[in-house]
Design a protein around this nucleic acid. Sequence first.
RNA 1: GGUCGCGUGGCCGAGUGGUUAGGCAGAGGUCUGCAAAACCUUGUACAGCGGUUCGAAUCCGCUCGCGACCUCCA
Length: 494
Amino acid sequence: MVRTIHIHNSLTRKKEEFKPIHEGQVGLYVCGPTVYNDVHLGNVRTFMSFDIMYRYLLHSGYKVRYVRNITDVGHLLDDGEDRISRGARLEQLEPMEVVQKYTNRFHAMMDRFNTLRPSIEPRATGHILEQIEMVQAILDKGFAYEKNGSVYFDTIKFAQEKGNYGKLSGRVIEDLQTATRDDLKNQSEKNHPSDFAIWMKADQSHIMKWNSPWSEGFPGWHLECSAMSTKYLGPTFDIHGGGNDLKFPHHENEVAQNVAACSCQPANYWIHTNMLLMNGKKMSKSDGNTISPEELFSGDSPHVSKGYDPMVVKFFMLQTHYSSTLDLSDDALQAAEKGFKKLMDAYKHLQNLDEATATGSTDLDLEINKGIQAAYAAMDDDFSTPKALAQLFELTTKINSLKDGHIKLNELSPEVLDNLKKTMKVFIFDIFGLTNIEDTGSRHLNGVMELIIDLRQSARVNKDWVTADKIRDTLQALNIQLKDGAEGTSWTIN
RNA sequence: GGUCGCGUGGCCGAGUGGUUAGGCAGAGGUCUGCAAAACCUUGUACAGCGGUUCGAAUCCGCUCGCGACCUCCA
């Protein structure tokens, strides 16, 4: 079953029904990280957002080819130094060592957030040939010019002949003229300030450089995505994603390069995720307004009062739509932690519910099925995780009521109970990719807790409240909370 | 300065022109040996000022505040 999904398309700024080029298949390209240091939370948010989309498309029955690149050359700093070269210089490593090191660490971090690996994760340096070919193609079409061994994209000519430079980012070329900063590298070589380099001649000190028809040099930053998306997804594919800070110039230039090289739009749908804020400002690697994922996990940061599990952080992010800014705060994280545990507790209790005996369609059946459908409808509507979560919490209330006997299981039919179990599992684990955090307790701990709860129950039967409360309060001090319910006592680690 | 977006109850955060978002916190209640948990009830919010409309948080205009992008950023 392939569901009908609506996506907010940045290209048209409208919500549109998603229609893949090839039925049942999706080509998805996401701009990945530049691996010159560790990812920060803002990166994580973006990749997590696309991971949810990837998972949901898969769950909806699509065959998805998910390409997310690793940028390991061409992405320059303000002073013109390559980010990877700088990392290599600072850490006294080979550039490729820097790349490998931070690629590994990036993967490890995304694993902690339980995101799926892409189908293909191509590196820019592994595709120098393709990029050189694309530069040549753009030159051949007359949309680029060479100056002193560097090749620049001719935005003026492109705009005149293709007429759509700036469409994605809403930019007008005349504005770019006046707004351009004058501290940019090789600005004087360009015919026009809005032109951009697609091949750059390397100076003597540059470590990372390759032979090309124009010079020994390296590709422009925007070029890799154009070349690699074309190679792995074809000249036109379904969805291109990235953070909205990439919209201009990166994505705008990417589109221009593809259109110039082959006269085709690279992606039918563009999806841009919004920024993660902290203290009301964009969380950003370059200006230091940031908290690292590790600091967030350990609590070792002035911005948080304690550490938060990656799953809590993920849950926190899921409560906001990907297209909205999200302001990180300790209060919000604490609230998210409780909400997350409530959801996971309910899921655990759901597993113990059995023997639904109603026949036919009861009111409760209808209500639960309606909630399930609403959760799917929310995801179909531009991947609205907050709305879907709200539905899961409605279901959570029902589950807890059933658990406590406030609603009787004989008001529920077995089919609907099964459907409920299946849906909760699919959403929590398959679509949201959450995992249990209290399962860190081993089998041993489970056994010990069973024994302790059993002993306390004996004490309670004997009205030995001193012993019963001592057990409870001591465990509480260890952050293990006992929960006395109708069907016995359960426990969680807080 | 240009472009775009946002401003929702104590906090976070959804939102289609008329119907309960949801989470956390708070209040009352049920349950419980007590407590916790859970469940039930509860808050009457949409920056301000105008306008359109039978009706606007939702559309339009203005004002104020905030943020993003404007060739480093997910």
